[in-house]
Design a protein around this nucleic acid. Structure first.
Lengths: 126, 126
DNA sequence: TATGGTACTAACAAATTTGTAAGTAATGGG
DNA sequence: CCCATTACTTACAAATTTGTTAGTACCATA
């Protein structure tokens, strides 16, 4: 998000992991704090910057910008700027991002199930 | 991983996001640096602490311990301690974690495809 | 001339994650 | 008693991510 150091152990490890494990690679692509929420909002079509900001409670303009930029760089969203004043910019999913949709639906179901299990195991251990 | 502050904006945001989006919730469960790699190693059965350490290049004992502890707390792995000296401990996937396997296979395929697309778009833009 | 709306950017600070280096406990074998 | 082995812990430091606050540019409208 800011610049990263070039040869920190941290970064070398990340490179190694994402190169040797496509799964880790995939999860890293969608792994920023707000990225999945943004992608979900875009599932039904284009949205403007301000629409995203208003639909995502708690996100700051800076964070929204950062995450959008990364998603764009990674080819998951397409950014369109209209030559108007005041500015208008919209964002939409790319094809490769749309291919994620069925997968993330399953993952979302898994998450819901996991959440329940964890809750019931916590309450039963009281 | 270390303790977290109780009411930082950061933490409040995370709580809000994972509560309102099961997908984000799910990804957070598997979102530490080494977690997916660990889970993948366990896909074929139990492994001891030292086996994991040896199979995962670059991980330190501290990181391995931390990630294993979190995975355990989240109910994704089961830890078994044998009353021996020197100690023997092994780790295995839980049922709910095994349910992730088909999903992560798809995600892994997606990752491989995405990697190719990104590479070709980078090289074509030179 | 001042104001407003939109989509940002910049400088900085705080929080969180990750890595380094060293140490611990328990016990069997020499 | 001393050492080796295994699975950790602890204290600390570095790196990275996230959040705060205050701007910016543009032009239309009042």
């Amino acid at each position: 998000m800011g610049k990263r150091k070039e040869n920190s152990t941290n970064m070398l490890n990340e490179n190694y992991i994402t190169e040797s494990c496509n799964l880790t690679y995939a999860v890293c692509k969608i792994g920023g704090r707000w990225k999945l929420l943004i992608l979900c909002k875009l599932e039904n079509g284009k949205l403007r910057f301000s629409e995203l900001r208003n639909q995502i409670k708690g996100i700051t303009e800076r964070m929204l910008t950062l995450q959008l930029r990364e998603l764009e760089k990674e080819g998951l969203i397409k950014r369109t700027v209209y030559a108007e004043v005041p500015p208008r910019v919209d964002y939409e999913l790319t094809e490769i991002a749309k291919e994620l949709v069925p997968i993330w639906n399953q993952l979302s179901n898994w998450g819901a199930k996991h959440k329940e299990i964890l809750l019931s195991s916590v309450s039963s251990s009281i």
